[in-house]
Amino acid sequence: MDPLPAHGAGPVGTWLLRDLPETIETATASLDPQDGDRMEPDGVMVDGTGGVDEEIRSSLSAVPCAVQDARWLTPDQQIRLVAVASLITGAARLLAEDPGTAITTGELSRM
């Protein structure tokens, strides 16, 4: 993929060019198969996060809306940004729901 053009002025452009790559890097480094869905000793179910905290998940979920405001990106670049954000979010959810299967069947590596 060609690098994103640097002329995307404004808050959306700054977020896409600087903050989003850092968020994706942090999310990828944070993936944790130990942070799965679980039951607490008191019987309360807790949704695991796959190692990705709420702030990062929230940022990744904003990508589809943000790229709509980035008219300086080509449609291909917009789709790729949405795909990457979706894959990272999906990898974390996959690890949270079923880490053993995700790892042993290669689902995680395919993502």
Results as ranks from 00 to 15, higher is better:
V12W: 01
G100K: 02
R57T: 15
W72E: 15
T28C: 13
G48W: 03
R80I: 09
P11H: 04
S86C: 08
V84W: 14
I103C: 02
A9L: 10
L16N: 01
R80M: 13
A9S: 11
A62N: 13
R80E: 15
M1F: 10
G13N: 03
D47N: 12
G10R: 03
A96W: 02
S109L: 06
G100S: 05
D37I: 05
T89K: 05
T101V: 02
V82L: 01
L95S: 02
G10L: 00
S86T: 13
G106N: 01
P21R: 11
M39G: 06
A102R: 00
A85Q: 08
R93I: 01
E40W: 08
Q68C: 06
E40H: 11
L87S: 07
D35M: 07
A83T: 11
E107V: 00
S30Y: 09
I24Y: 02
T101Y: 06
V12H: 00
L81H: 03
C65Y: 10
R93K: 10
S59R: 15
D32Y: 11
V44L: 14
G90E: 06
L87V: 08
E97R: 06
W72Q: 11
P41V: 07
D69G: 09
D69W: 06
V12G: 03
G10N: 03
M39H: 11
A91W: 00
G90T: 04
A27G: 10
D32W: 12
A70L: 05
D69S: 14
T28L: 15
Q77G: 08
D69A: 13
P5E: 08
L108K: 02
R18S: 12
S109D: 08
D2N: 15
L60K: 05
D47Q: 14
E25A: 14
A70S: 05
E25V: 11
M45C: 04
L94V: 05
M111E: 03
T104I: 08
A6V: 05
Q78Y: 07
R80G: 09
A102Y: 01
G8P: 04
P41A: 12
T105K: 03
L95C: 02
T105N: 01
M45G: 08
E25S: 12
D2L: 12
P33K: 09
D32S: 12
P21Q: 09
P11G: 07
D42M: 05
S86W: 05
A66K: 14
L17Y: 06
P99E: 01
R80D: 15
G100Q: 04
D47E: 12
G48H: 04
P41G: 10
D32T: 09
W15Q: 00
M45R: 13
L16T: 06
S59C: 11
A9R: 14
V52R: 15
L16F: 07
I103S: 03
D35G: 04
T104G: 01
I103E: 00
S30F: 10
H7S: 11
T28R: 14
S59M: 14
T26R: 15
D32F: 13
R38V: 07
E22T: 10
C65A: 15
Q68V: 11
D2M: 13
D42C: 06
G90F: 02
S109C: 00
E54F: 13
A91P: 02
V46N: 12
M1E: 11
L94Q: 13
L108M: 03
G100H: 01
